[in-house]
Amino acid sequence: MPKKLRVSAETITELRDFLSGVDVDMGCRPVALKRDDRYVTTVVADDGELDRISIRRLGSISVEVLEDVPSPQSRLRMLRSGNRFLRGKVPQGLGEKK
């Protein structure tokens, strides 16, 4: 099952060099945020790649497993069939109107 990982390094260059050698999903935009004295990014890796990452870890690179990524089946179960607006019910938002 794919895992969400927090990868960090002391420098952007070190983080980029590390990520360039691994096959991970860097989300919609590959960004690193500064946390204390480290640059941190979040990626998703499958189990095979996670094994490779563990072996490849170098220098100041730190890899922390955050959580399992939900399986495709569990994500698809979040959906329902049909069209809840088909009978003309106008959508109502979640904000409190007052």
Binding site: V90, P91, Q92, G93, L94, G95, E96, K97, K98
Partner: peptide, 20 residues
């Protein structure tokens, strides 16, 4: 975004504010 549209339009129509 769809529900934001719904909230803003309902608030404009009913002359209320919106709280989140």
């Amino acid at each position: 975004l769809l529900f934001l549209c719904a909230d803003l339009l309902e608030a404009r129509s009913r002359e209320t504010g919106v709280r989140y």
